[in-house]
Simulated assay, not measured.
Amino acid sequence: MPPADPAAHTGTAVPATADVNAGADSSARLRGFRHAGPSAGVGADLGANAGVSGLGEDTVDLRLPDELLALIADASSGSHGARRPDQDTAQTSDAIATTRAASVPSVPSLVPAEDDLLDRVADWGPTDTSVGVFQLVPVRVERDLPLISRWMNDPAAAAFWGLSGPRNVTEDHVLSQLAGDGRSVPCIGALDGTPMSFWEIYRADLDPLARHCPVRPHDTGIHLLVGAVADRGRGLGGLLLRAVADLVLVRRPSCARVIAEPDIRNTPSIAAFLTAGFRFSAEVDLPDKRAALMVRNRALRHLL
């Protein structure tokens, strides 16, 4: 459940147009519980609601889908998270080493179309917004790592993503996703062709997040980091979150909800999600944070 903490600031009250900078802790990335490693297995209980209050209609009793049962059978432990406590570190290290050695050019070549779990993010294409044309571009390590690492070392981002330090810290986080099965896809967000944000699009129902709150089959999660300081505080976080959530719902017809779990302390991030049409569903206790579960329902898409 890598972070979508759009705005990596801690702070007090923030207007609803606040920007999402730091990490989609929606991004509110959990250290060690991030969606960094789609390579790890699932083992998620879709009906789990431990540590959640006020779940209301979001609590459902589901039979595990055949797709998830098959993934569980193939995997020994689960998550996106680069530093997740329950991660099989040996397996992940091997996968990262293999990916680095292969010098993988892009995500699309790693995820066969027939096995893609996110309906080919690379093919989603551009979308028009009031501030320009926006597009999610799957990360290419050799091209994008220096920029992402620089963004992660910004104090505002570091507070929620926990990926500051040497470049290999960010590299391992990204490679663990690229070496996986496609349940989490790291992307650069380009506005009018200029890289300006880092995103992670992930299958929430195949993520350890499902152990801590009720999720539904094909629920799709978002993590966002608005990278450049000059792009923060302009309302871009909420605007782009809405655009990407719409894109998910258009490109993933099987997905009924887009969700995020920013740190409950990250008020700018939560405000950005509210501006984007998400609603606050519950507070959730996760291994590395107390999060605000934010949900955007397909059925309410045109009302919020």
Rank of each mutant, 00 (worst) to 15 (best):
I201P: 12
H218K: 05
A179P: 08
N266T: 05
A95H: 03
L69V: 15
L147A: 08
A70N: 10
I188R: 08
P166L: 06
S26N: 11
E142G: 14
G193F: 08
A122D: 15
L224S: 02
G78A: 07
R31V: 15
R298K: 07
F134T: 01
L55C: 09
V258R: 01
D144Q: 07
A82D: 12
V60L: 14
I201R: 08
R265Y: 09
R251A: 07
K289Q: 14
V250R: 10
A230L: 08
A271V: 02
E57G: 06
N297M: 08
P65N: 04
T12L: 08
L293K: 05
A256W: 02
V248A: 03
E67K: 03
H35A: 14
R298I: 00
A101N: 10
P112T: 12
Q135T: 12
S106M: 10
N49R: 11
A22P: 11
P38W: 06
V248N: 03
D154V: 11
P105A: 07
T98P: 00
P105R: 04
A4T: 02
S76Y: 09
A70S: 14
D74Y: 00
T17R: 12
I148N: 00
F278T: 10
S184V: 13
T17Q: 13
A7G: 13
A95E: 14
L191M: 10
L46R: 08
D231K: 00
R211K: 07
L62C: 04
V111E: 09
A36G: 15
A204M: 06
D25Y: 07
G180F: 02
V104R: 01
T12V: 10
P166D: 12
R251F: 05
P6E: 06
I264H: 14
G238R: 04
H218N: 13
L110V: 13
G47W: 00
H212Q: 03
A260I: 02
A101V: 00
A48W: 03
D25S: 12
W161M: 12
D119K: 01
D285W: 01
P262T: 00
G23Q: 10
P268L: 02
D25T: 09
A122Q: 08
G233V: 04
L163S: 08
D128V: 09
E200G: 01
L175D: 04
A75E: 11
P112F: 03
